[in-house]
Computed example of a mutant assay.
Amino acid sequence: MPELVLWDIDHTLMVTGGLGRELWAQAFAEVTGVEMREQAAVTGSTERVILRETARLHDVPYTDGLFEDFAQVLGLVHIRRAAELRERGHALPGAAVVLAALTEQGVPQSVVTGNVRAAAEVKLSVFGLDSYLRLENGAYAEDGEDRADLLRTALGRAGTSPGEAVFLGDTPADVAGARTAGIRVVAVATGRTSADDLAADVVLDNLSDTDRALAAIWA
């Protein structure tokens, strides 16, 4: 049994029903004064990288201060529109059951995500998933750009070695980051990448089969 289970959030535990991009565009416009015409590729990236590349697409100078302002506003936008998020998005089938089963087994859990922390907390709270997770031990967009570095940050906060942890994610970046960080990875094909293209040792179609998901995590 692992001593720590780490989760990606978007398309692994939940989906926003398309609202996520709207919230992002709203925060971008509020911070930069520029309406977002297009957004840089988001799959597997962190908000910091997405903001930098989206700013470049709009000829907006990027600075660390811009990201800090954006992170604060994006969190506030999620708070203001939490009810809409609850209506349009949903936790993915089986996610809450697997989280609850691991909690019952006494396994600590947290998140490693490209989201800024405030937005991540709203998403998880809206769908009732936050109570299973030790969010203070997670890693977020404020902590870096590289998935492997985020995983190492979360391990450090939890006081856990790579060999004692498991990471679940839905993108090739999740798989590659876990391997670089020396963490066993279980891929979940509930995002935009097919099971074949995830190329992980263990790939679940989804989390609906609780016994299979737990077996993959406990392997």
Rank of each mutant, 00 (worst) to 15 (best):
A187H: 06
Q26F: 00
R21S: 13
A199F: 06
V116G: 04
D146E: 15
V97A: 14
I217Y: 02
W7E: 00
R212T: 15
F67A: 00
A82Y: 06
A40L: 04
T153H: 11
D197G: 07
A181V: 10
V185G: 02
P162F: 11
T43A: 11
A82R: 15
G75N: 04
D146M: 05
D64W: 04
E87Q: 11
A200G: 05
D209Y: 04
T63P: 04
V116I: 13
L57A: 11
D149V: 10
V112Q: 07
L214Y: 07
G182P: 08
A100Q: 12
R157P: 13
A154L: 08
E121Y: 10
E84D: 15
T171C: 10
E145S: 11
L155D: 09
R152I: 08
S131Y: 09
Q26A: 12
E142A: 02
Q105A: 15
D205R: 14
I217S: 00
V186S: 05
R88W: 07
R37I: 08
T180G: 02
Q39R: 14
V31M: 02
A40W: 12
E87I: 03
H78K: 03
P61C: 01
T190Q: 04
G163M: 07
R21G: 09
S131I: 13
T113W: 01
R179H: 15
L124G: 09
D209P: 10
S194Q: 05
